[in-house]
């Protein structure tokens, strides 16, 4: 079956080693889609995830450290996005994810999708976010009290 994101700019993935502003990214994304001259999609769903200030064990968090697998991480996100777009009929997908040292309150992930209707947009966006959390090679280490601990897998939601 054809890849619905095969069109120019329909799939955008970016990893950031430094803090990024998700609203600036979203504005750029929307401008880039509009630049193609097509009418904007009727529905968009956006998710912004930020680092919370406590560890899984409830201690104050100094920072999260995000390791990834350069090359595979980006390729895997692209595969997950294409799968999700196929299943939900998404028209465009944008994924941004931090790597490196991320501070409490900073944005760690942005997932934005567009579709013709709200159902596909919201379901597709949620499914892609969950897929990223479990199927894209990222590893978190929580730093608290000067000690780093690798997080063993993700919470269910």
């Amino acid at each position: 079956m054809a890849d619905p994101l095969a069109g120019n700019g329909a799939l955008q993935v970016q990893l950031h080693a430094e803090r990024f502003d998700p609203l600036v990214v979203l504005a750029d994304w929307q401008r880039s889609l509009a630049a193609g001259g097509t009418e904007p999609a009727a529905a968009e769903a956006h998710f912004i995830g930020r680092v919370r200030g406590i560890t899984a064990a409830g201690a104050p968090l100094e920072a999260l450290e995000l390791e990834h697998y350069p090359g595979m991480t980006e390729a895997q996100i692209a595969r997950l996005a294409a799968d999700c777009a196929q299943r939900h009929g998404l028209r465009a997908v944008r994924v941004d994810h931090r790597v490196g040292r991320v501070l409490p309150g900073d944005t760690i992930v942005l997932v934005a999708v567009s579709a013709d209707r709200r159902g596909p947009a919201q379901r597709g966006g949620q499914e892609l976010l969950e897929a990223l959390k479990h199927e894209a090679p990222f590893w978190k280490r929580e730093w608290s009290g000067g000690v780093g601990s690798w997080v063993a897998g993700n919470t269910a939601y």
């Binding site: 995830g49 995000l66 990834h68 697998y69 595979m72 895997q76 994810h97 760690i108 992930v109 976010l129 990223l132 959390k133 479990h134 199927e135 894209a136 090679p137 990222f138 590893w139 978190k140 690798w150 997080v151 063993a152 897998g153 993700n154």
Partner: peptide, 23 residues
């Protein structure tokens, strides 16, 4: 992602990945 039991071709890059915790 691949099976742990597939024979590796010359030049392959194999990676062992602990449980993923992204997002």
């Amino acid at each position: 992602f691949a099976s742990a039991h597939q024979p590796l071709a010359p030049g392959a890059e194999v990676a062992f990945l602990p449980p993923i915790s992204g997002g």
